[in-house]
Amino acid sequence: MNSGDIWQQFGVTTWHSRRARRLLLVMASGCLSLVAIAAVLMESGAMTPHIGWRVDSFFLRAEVDENEVLSTDVEIELENEAFTSFTVTDVSAEMPGLRLLPGKPSEATVEGNGYGQLTGRVVITDCAAVPYEPQPVRFTYETWMGTRSAEVTWDSWRLTGPEESMPIAWQRGLADKVCNDAVNPDWP
């Protein structure tokens, strides 16, 4: 007879393995519960908002102020694709030839599954220097978890020609429209 037989005779090994299995089951179910809760919070937009962005080019108009600074206002349409509300507090972008500044109002709160609108001011310092590759826009937003920021690259605009249309970076399309409008207000 060895020590393992003695422990088994008194039921110590059976008790120990049952307790270990129960502890392992509790830990596994706790981990699965945390993963499920995190997935629900992510999907609901409680941790990271699900935001849709869009800029309507139809309303872009060139404005030249008394200092001969070329600019335009852009209407940024916000869509909340989740249940939790968020507030966009800042929109900005800096790239060669173009800067996106906050407009008025400078922040917008969008309720869950709702829509909102924010105005940005685009200052074009050099029409030819605006990049042809899509550039990101930085959004700062607040949720119940605090303030965060994200960089988003808007979808390409379409340049339509007589036979075909081709994609063009959003900032290049915006600069072309505003610069052409400043030179020729009758530009389509």
Rank of each mutant, 00 (worst) to 15 (best):
E81I: 02
Y132R: 15
V88C: 07
V26I: 14
V122G: 00
L23M: 05
H16W: 04
T89E: 15
V123P: 02
T109R: 09
L118T: 06
M42W: 02
W53H: 12
L32R: 04
L23V: 06
V91W: 08
A93E: 09
N67T: 05
W53Q: 09
E133L: 13
G112K: 00
M47G: 00
R99A: 14
A36E: 04
F59H: 12
H50I: 06
D56Q: 14
Q9V: 07
S92I: 05
V64D: 06
F58N: 15
N67Y: 05
M42D: 12
S17D: 14
Y115R: 12
I51H: 02
Q9A: 14
F58E: 14
M47N: 01
V122K: 05
P136E: 12
R61P: 03
E81V: 06
N67H: 07
T89N: 15
G45A: 03
I51F: 04
L118V: 10
L25V: 13
T13K: 08
Y115F: 12
A38Y: 08
G30L: 07
G112S: 10
M95S: 11
I51M: 15
T87M: 12
Y132H: 15
E81R: 08
Q9Y: 10
L25N: 09
E43L: 12
T119Q: 11
E94L: 09
Q117T: 09
N80H: 04
F139D: 02
V40M: 11
I76L: 12
Y115S: 13
E75M: 15
E107T: 07
G30I: 04
I76Y: 01
E107K: 06
T87G: 08
E68D: 11
T48K: 09
P96M: 03
L60Y: 09
A62Y: 04
Y132P: 09
E77M: 10
P49C: 05
R138F: 08
I37F: 04
F139N: 05
I124W: 00
G112N: 08
L23K: 02
M42F: 08
Q135K: 10
M47V: 11
K104C: 01
E75H: 12
A36D: 03
P134Q: 13
